[in-house]
Amino acid sequence: MGFKLLSKLLVYLTASIMAIASPLAFSVDSSGEYPTVSEIPVGEVRLYQIADGVWSHIATQSFDGAVYPSNGLIVRDGDELLLIDTAWGAKNTAALLAEIEKQIGLPVTRAVSTHFHDDRVGGVDVLRAAGVATYASPSTRRLAEVEGNEIPTHSLEGLSSSGDAVRFGPVELFYPGAAHSTDNLIVYVPSASVLYGGCAIYELSRTSAGNVADADLAEWPTSIERIQQHYPEAQFVIPGHGLPGGLDLLKHTTNVVKAHTNRSVVE
């Protein structure tokens, strides 16, 4: 069995187990497998329904001669939608809004960016022009300005110390501490036991640490421990890039980060 097929099978099995364990909360999309990078042309966006009122959005972007996937989250909030992270750029984010209108038909009224990198804030200006209120932590807003990236308009308070959590509509926002970046936030959907790890969490097929220019490698494993301790009931975990899975993604990420750190020390 090929690795790609095995990865998709694991996603399907995880979703099936969740649907059985929580039949009222989960209505997993039966329309197909989780979209992969090879299936999404740059400039297009796919939506994948995880649970009743919960979707991931998947886009792709060219970077350094390669094409990478990027995940975000959409959560229903009454007759409105909360968006977590842009679709990595203005063109993708405009396509995301169009796809949401086509498939869901509810307005996106608020959006949260989970850290300051372009795959999370690139497209904020498109959201703002569409009347979406954009939010991020003060740290993310400051770092985005320093980096020359787009800056969300509103500040999220109460997320300055490791372990801080605040309720934001249908989700809980959690600051686990520094990891992929010093400002990275985690998003949890309690009604569906869905954990969105953003770039602080890796997919299972990833074996290298990737972009760690703004990471705190020493603190990252401790931050992941905080996530595990705060959300032990999480059933569906979405990484910032690639295929979702279960809580095993947290341990896998820790292993990859520690291996990278150990290699760096040896070198």
Rank of each mutant, 00 (worst) to 15 (best):
E39A: 11
D64K: 06
Y196T: 02
L250T: 13
L127C: 00
Q49E: 08
D118H: 06
F116C: 03
L47H: 02
G89L: 03
A95T: 13
Y188M: 08
A90E: 09
R120V: 02
D64W: 06
A94M: 13
E219H: 15
Q235W: 12
L83E: 05
T207W: 13
G65F: 08
A234K: 03
L159D: 02
G53I: 09
L106I: 13
I58C: 07
L173T: 03
R226V: 12
R141D: 02
E233P: 09
P107N: 13
N211H: 05
F116P: 02
A98Q: 12
N149L: 09
Y34D: 10
V11M: 11
F3P: 03
P35Y: 07
D29L: 10
G163P: 11
V75M: 07
E145I: 14
A133I: 08
P190D: 11
H180A: 00
G245N: 10
N255P: 03
N184D: 03
W55Q: 01
K102T: 13
G198R: 02
S113D: 03
S193R: 09
V37A: 08
V45G: 04
S31V: 04
Y34E: 13
G131I: 04
N184S: 03
P244E: 04
A179Q: 00
G177D: 03
D125G: 10
G89K: 14
E101P: 15
R226I: 04
W55R: 01
K102D: 15
L96E: 01
T140K: 03
L243I: 12
T140W: 01
S31F: 14
E157P: 15
R167F: 14
F168C: 03
H260Y: 06
F63D: 06
A51E: 08
L106K: 14
Y135R: 00
P239M: 02
A234P: 04
S162V: 14
I104A: 11
F3H: 12
E33K: 07
G122F: 04
T261G: 12
M1P: 02
N211Q: 06
L10Y: 12
A165D: 15
W220F: 06
W55Y: 09
L5G: 06
V126E: 09
H260N: 07
G242K: 02
S162R: 12
P221Y: 09
R263W: 09
Q235P: 12
A111Q: 15
A90F: 15
D118V: 08
L10P: 07
L243N: 15
Y188P: 01
G105A: 08
G148D: 11
I74G: 01
V256W: 04
W55C: 00
R46P: 05
L9W: 09
S264G: 13
G131N: 11
H117M: 00
H117V: 00
S16I: 04
T134S: 11
P35D: 12
H115Q: 00
T207H: 06
L204Q: 07
N184R: 02
R110W: 15
I201Q: 01
D248V: 10
S205H: 07
F26L: 08
A98H: 14
S27V: 07
H230W: 11
H57T: 11
L82G: 02
D248A: 07
T109K: 15
I20W: 07
G78P: 03
G43R: 12
D77Y: 05
E99K: 10
D125C: 03
G210M: 11
S22D: 10
P176R: 02
V37T: 08
A94H: 15
L249N: 15
A215W: 13
W88C: 00
P138T: 11
E150G: 11
A19W: 08
I74W: 01
A59E: 08
V11N: 15
F236L: 05
V171A: 10
A165G: 12
T140C: 03
L243R: 13
E44V: 13
L96R: 01
D119R: 00
G240D: 03
R206C: 08
N149Y: 15
A51N: 12
A178D: 13
S70D: 02
H252E: 13
S56H: 04
I224S: 05
Y175P: 02
V126I: 06
L13E: 12
D77E: 06
V132R: 01
V11D: 04
S181A: 12
G245T: 02
G78F: 15
S205P: 06
F174T: 04
V132P: 01
E172F: 10
I238Y: 14
K8H: 12
S7V: 10
L247S: 05
V194I: 05
P107H: 04
A98G: 14
A87K: 00
G163N: 14
I201T: 05
T36K: 12
T182P: 09
T140S: 09
I17M: 04
L250Q: 00
A213Y: 12
Q229V: 08
N255R: 11
L127K: 02
G169K: 04
I74D: 02
S161T: 10
N71E: 00
A90G: 13
A136V: 03
T36R: 07
A144M: 07
G89E: 02
E39L: 09
R120T: 03
A25D: 06
S181H: 00
A51S: 08
E203M: 03
V121K: 00
Y12V: 11
R76M: 13
H57P: 01
S161L: 12
